[in-house]
Each structure stands twice: as C-alpha cells, then as structure tokens.
C-alpha cells in the first residue's frame, strides 16, 4: 500500500511538473524523491512477493491500514522537505521580499 501510494504521488507530481512551463516550484526534486522511494520499495515488494507468494496480495486489514497511514505520512514528509527546500532556495524571491518588507 505504501508503494502504491508513493507511485501514485510520483506519477501525479511528474505530470504536474511536465505541464508547468517553468520550474519555479522546484517540482523536479519532489519527483525524484517519490520515484527514488518507489523504486526502492518496489525491490522490497519483489522480495516480499518471492517470500509470501499469493498471500502478498491479500494482506490483513490491520496491516493495510497501517501501510496506508504510513504511505500518507511519507507523502506528508516528502512535501514538508520539498516546501522547506523551496523556501530556502527562494527561486521567486518571495521570502526575501517578505523579510525586507517587515
């Protein structure tokens, strides 16, 4: 479930990055984060599937809820990292402008 949520997030972020004319939101970084994690969890999933076989596709409800919660938490963490990086890089100069205005 965590893998699924991360892959969906990666695909959506990449599509948004593609449609934007300029990279002022630095979405490329978020794309790389999600795809990197997706690839790594995919390897994890392959090994788990090799061990569990068909049982891999029918997880216990409690595990599924926990994995979903983890997936959402991972997305939240990635977005926080991305926002912090965006504010530090300040490509549009908004942060600097706001500080100087005060």
């Amino acid at each position: 479930m965590t893998l699924l949520i991360t892959v969906i997030a990666a695909a959506i972020t990449t599509a948004v990055w593609y449609t934007r004319k300029n990279d002022d939101l630095k979405l490329g970084f978020l794309c790389f984060m999600f795809w990197g994690a997706s690839l790594m969890w995919m390897v994890d999933a392959i090994f788990e599937f090799a061990e569990l076989k068909e049982a891999y596709f029918s997880p216990a409800l409690e595990d599924m809820i926990n994995d979903t919660f983890l997936g959402v938490a991972v997305i939240a963490l990635a977005m926080v990292i991305w926002v912090v990086r965006l504010l530090i890089l300040d490509p549009k100069g908004r942060v600097k402008e706001a500080i100087l205005r005060q």
Partner: peptide
C-alpha cells in the same frame, strides 16, 4: 543523487 537521497530519506522514515 536526488533519486538516491529522496529514496533513502523516505525509507529511513519508514
């Protein structure tokens, strides 16, 4: 580096 660090940070969290 972005691909690796991104994945490592999120996996560390997991």
């Amino acid at each position: 580096t972005k691909l690796l660090w991104g994945g490592v940070i999120l996996l560390l969290f997991e």
